[in-house]
Nucleic acid binder design. Structure first.
Lengths: 142, 142
DNA sequence: GAATATCCTACAAAATTGGTAGGAATTAAT
DNA sequence: ATTAATTCCTACCAATTTTGTAGGATATTC
């Protein structure tokens, strides 16, 4: 399951996506509109900024802006920045790989299954974007 | 990510699957063969038993037996018993549903995306079984 | 230089994870 | 009937992660 922090991140990005092209958005505005605890939100936005997804401006008229167009921000990236691995096992993660103890990766059955599961999940999360999330169109095909 | 407990559960079930039809298997044997802390393993096996997946026999010659054939134990069920929800959000879980606060489920974009992701993951996890896990055949078609 | 923002460091309560300890209950064999 | 073998139950505990909060430092604008 995604942490609450990650859900907040998505909500914040949703709001920034709706304001895309309209200049900087203050943390306080995001906090108020999306009902996210302000100080907690600060941490989240800094992380997204450090990951290159947001740009910030200090002082009056400042705030946060998306550095990438909503249609180019895929959901997998957001999850990886805030939540961590998407795979179900560390030894199967593409971005957070860790060797598993006592397991021959070449023959491990569990590993094989989890690779298949990972790929199925990623096909969705890497295809869907923040634009898909704010456009309320129903996707008939997948 | 799956908890260590869940990984242990899979390893224990793997071993029980290889011994399917050969009578009860002692906790100590599973612990030794799969390198799982014995007392921790006890807890796990009781949970699997309470969920109806295992049968137990006490006293000499006792131990645990699969109540279901390996080819009928799908991975999603195991995960649900030990790890909990498979979905990425509570409001999207089929078996552990919880309403999300401040979110209109009919229009929430995040929810729509996570339903699609859930379904993609489940198509794999509900299809694959413990038999697939112990048979070391490569699956060409997914 | 005052006001407005983000940014940084540190702390902390609560929940979850990954176990361990010790004995009770049941069954089988002698 | 006793003993040995096994699962089962209750309770505890340390470490880690999660979900925040507090307070001020830093940069920008007017």
């Amino acid at each position: 399951m995604l942490s609450k922090k990650t859900q907040y991140a998505f909500k914040a990005l949703e709001y920034l996506a709706t304001q895309y092209g309209k200049g900087p958005v203050k943390i306080a505005d995001i906090s108020k509109n999306q009902k996210i605890p302000l100080k907690f939100l600060e941490n989240i936005l800094v992380e997204l900024k450090n990951a290159g997804m947001l740009e910030s401006k200090k002082g009056k008229g400042g705030g946060y802006i998306l550095r990438i167009a909503p249609k180019n921000i895929n959901l997998a990236n957001v999850i990886r920045i805030i939540n961590g691995p998407i795979a179900l096992l560390p030894c199967v993660s593409l971005n957070f790989y860790e060797k598993c103890i006592d397991c021959d990766e070449a023959t491990c059955g569990m590993r094989k299954m989890m690779i298949i599961a990972r790929d199925a999940t990623l096909r969705v999360l890497e295809k869907k974007t923040m634009a898909d999330m704010i456009n309320n169109e129903v996707d008939i095909l997948m």
